[in-house]
């Protein structure tokens, strides 16, 4: 599903953020990406949601070398990848429900087709009562859950999450963690970036540890 072969990455002519990274995430796996701030977790996820190309090595997604994708193919691949961004990336002028519906809407679905699905997703993340509230009126944890609902509403094959428990209290973090575990049980491949070592230790899932930009352990290829 996800295959990294000796991948290196840097921004422009800057220093290497990632170097010689090789790993394989099989279909249906739950994989943690750990490392201190600045270790390259977000950069690795950016490569996975096709926002950038590696500066060295090769990344294969769904069996395709991502450097060969056209802009349209990138859009179609992204419909199979749900992302929970660290900064949520919600559209402030849309309601929570409209934000959740976004991946369906840009894929051409009509409102009557997805209305129930969106409402169900918001119920699932515990925001059934806040459907028509816009993000600026939501708390950090609520925004986080809108972002999670949006990431999974189109039933993607891969779910990427960048520090989804970073800005919430421990109780909410536990709830969010349960949501991701549930999605994994439904067969989704989950890649979960976090710097919370306790969380990783407790869940006993395979881990890719980025120590100053290099791979060590985890599900090494």
């Amino acid at each position: 599903m996800i295959l990294f072969e000796n991948v290196g990455f840097r921004y422009g002519r800057g220093p290497d953020v990632l170097q010689g990274l090789s790993f394989d995430v099989p279909d249906g796996a739950f994989t943690f990406i750990t490392g201190a701030s600045g270790a390259g977790k977000s950069s690795l996820l950016r490569l996975l949601y096709l926002d950038d190309l590696p500066s060295a090595g090769k990344i294969s997604l769904f069996g395709r070398d991502i450097s060969t994708l056209t802009r349209d193919e990138i859009a179609w691949f992204r419909r199979r990848i749900g992302v929970v961004f660290q900064d949520f990336r919600l559209l402030d002028h849309l309601t929570a429900a409209e934000n959740v519906a976004l991946p369906l809407r840009v894929a051409g679905a009509r409102e009557v087709e997805y209305r129930d699905n969106v409402a169900e997703m918001l119920q699932w993340v515990g925001l059934g009562g806040q459907m028509h509230i816009r993000p600026p009126q939501l708390s950090g944890g609520e925004k986080q859950r809108v972002a999670i609902a949006r990431a999974v509403v189109a039933s993607p094959d891969i779910i990427l999450a960048d520090e989804p428990t970073g800005s919430v209290d421990p109780e909410m973090a536990e709830r969010i963690m349960q949501l991701f575990m549930e999605m994994n049980r439904l067969g989704k491949t989950v890649v979960f970036a976090t710097h919370d070592a306790d969380l990783v230790k407790r869940s006993k899932k395979p881990t890719i540890d980025l120590k100053s930009g290099t791979s060590s352990g985890g599900v090494a290829a």
């Binding site: 926002d51 992204r78 559209l91 976004l102």
Partner: peptide, 16 residues
Amino acid sequence: SANIATLRLAGAEDRY
């Protein structure tokens, strides 16, 4: 640009 980047990340094609 930020909103459009979000649309792209949500799977919107350029023509959308």
